[in-house]
Design a protein around this nucleic acid. Sequence first.
DNA 1: GCTGATAATAAGCACCCCTTACAAAGATGC
DNA 2: GCATCTTTGTAAGGGGTGCTTATTATCAGC
Lengths: 158, 158
Amino acid sequence: MPTRQDSDSFGFIVGDISRLIRAEMERRIAAAGLSVTPGEGRTLLNIARIGTVRQNVLAERMGVEAMTLSGYVDRLEQRCLVSRAVDPADRRAKLVSLTSEAEGVVEELRALGDSLRADLSRTMRSDEWDALMANLRRIREDLAGMKCKTPAVVETGE
Amino acid sequence: MPTRQDSDSFGFIVGDISRLIRAEMERRIAAAGLSVTPGEGRTLLNIARIGTVRQNVLAERMGVEAMTLSGYVDRLEQRCLVSRAVDPADRRAKLVSLTSEAEGVVEELRALGDSLRADLSRTMRSDEWDALMANLRRIREDLAGMKCKTPAVVETGE
DNA sequence: GCTGATAATAAGCACCCCTTACAAAGATGC
DNA sequence: GCATCTTTGTAAGGGGTGCTTATTATCAGC
């Protein structure tokens, strides 16, 4: 079995990668003339995938608390990238959708993400990459299960 | 080739995993009666690995700026888990070491990390895990190279 | 001795979260 | 119909993880 250092290493490596990806994406986003924070970007991409959605559902999909999501949506709404509307089926709830202005931004974010992914998988065979992704997804699922939250978290970003 | 969704997915997945690991470790750390933040924990484990070290070297190893590291060390010093001493070879520099009190904390952190790693790799064969780790390490190296920093970042946590 | 670089820290800030609390709306049971 | 509990989104407040610019003291090289 791996030495005990592996216990540090997985968490450290994933943390490092996460931080480095974030920094790299921020650089590419800035270079592309966008000014979207990572959280906002994530929110946009998730709405793009899901379509018009309630805030609470979106928060759950993204694995963050309602308050956190509300802050992201606030800032995106101010930038006219998303719009909020009361859900006619339940007046407590708000529906969030992308504006037409957001479409270009979303496309750019996707392209940047594509580019980075291509850079990172450049030296890997397709099946290797698929295995890596499958393993990471399972690990994420395991971790989400530890939290005893609903499995909706598993589907975040997919 | 993978669909464009993969570009979102890798970054998202790693980010999710990073966040979930952090949350899970915080839960386990709190349950163990420790009260160490992730950054502080990382700092302790890195010092434990490296031994007495200059702050600037430690910061570089951990992939953070000097100021960030200084803050971590401040808090750990206040908790009597690390001690600072002027480096006799260069009075600008400070050497940081673990105190004897930190030893138990470090052991606990390692045990918690071991436990989590075991939980996560439970369903994977050893060679699968090794392949995953090797791929993640290479990806981290690629990302670090994009940043055009010194390769010392590659060695962080190892 | 002078110049440029380095190490650590002060000050300030952004971002990403979270918690507690609350008001409005909805669901449920009697 | 009413009381009670739950849900949704937000106000207020705060912690952690970073970073940048600036500064001081020290060091290295010429």
